[in-house]
Design a protein around this nucleic acid. Structure first.
Lengths: 112, 112
DNA sequence: TTACCGATTATGTTTATCGTAATAAAGGAG
DNA sequence: CTCCTTTATTACGATAAACATAATCGGTAA
C-alpha cells in the first residue's frame, strides 16, 4: 500500500465527503439520527468528522427539506436533536442509489 | 419525482462532487485526460462543471501526486495539458473502488 | 459542591466551488 | 493577409463548506 495518512486525508476531503453524507441519509431512513451518535458511528467506519462539520451539515440537510428535526421543547437549548428522513429526502436517497449503481457498474465492474 | 432543479443542484454540490472526481481518475487510468474534454464528457453524464472548478481540481490532483501532467513545451502557455494516472493515483483509485463497493453493498443492496 | 458525560453551539481560519471574463494559439474562409 | 471560430487554459472575486477548537448547557454521580 503506497497510500500514507496524508493521502487518506486527501481522499477523504476530496472525494469521500459525499459518501458519509449518503450514510447519514440512509441511517435517517432507518430511524432517528443524532449528531454525536452519527459522528461516532462514522468514526467506526474510518471517517473522522468534527462537530464543526457535522452539525452545520445536519442543519443544512434540514433546511434543504431532506431531514426533519425533532427536539424536546421542555429540555434546554442544547438538548439532543433527532433527525428523520422526509419524503423529499427519500426521493434524494433513491436518486442517489441510482447514481451509486451507475458508478459501481462503471468503475468497479468496469462495464459500459 | 418530487425533486426539482434546485434539489438536483443541491445533491450535486452536496454529494456528487466526489463521484465525478472518481470518473476523472477512472478515465485517466484508461488514457490521457484533458480538462475541456472531461468537462464535456461529464456534461454528457449530467454533471455541469465550470472551468473554475475543473482546472484547479486537475492541478490539485497533480499536486497530490495522483495525476501526472504532460504538455508540449514548444506550444504556448495555454496549450492543452494531458493528465495520466500515476502509481499513487492507481492506489487511490483502487482504495476508492473498495469504498464504492462498500457503499453499494450497504445502501443499494441494503446488506449488513 | 464539584466533576464528568452527553450533546450542541460558537467561532475563526483555510480551502473549494462557481460563474464569468480574459487570454492564447491554431485553422479555415474570404 | 486578416478576420472569425474553435480549442484550451488561466485569472479572479464572491460565496460557501470543512475543520479544529473552545464554549456552553443540563443531568447525574461522587
Amino acid at each position: 500500500m503506497l497510500l500514507n495518512k496524508l493521502d487518506q486525508k486527501a481522499i477523504q476531503r476530496e472525494i469521500l465527503l459525499g459518501f458519509w453524507k449518503i450514510h447519514i441519509l440512509y441511517h435517517a431512513a432507518k430511524g432517528p439520527v443524532i449528531g454525536l451518535e452519527m459522528m461516532q458511528e462514522l468514526a467506526r467506519h474510518g471517517y473522522d468528522i468534527s462537530p464543526g462539520t457535522m452539525y452545520p451539515l445536519l442543519a443544512r440537510l434540514n433546511k434543504l427539506g431532506w431531514l426533519e428535526c425533532r427536539q424536546d421543547k421542555l429540555a434546554g437549548p442544547k438538548a439532543k436533536k433527532e433527525y428523520f428522513l422526509t419524503a423529499l429526502g427519500h426521493e434524494a436517497l433513491n436518486f442517489l442509489k441510482g447514481q451509486i449503481e451507475e458508478l459501481h457498474r462503471e468503475v468497479v465492474l468496469d462495464r459500459e
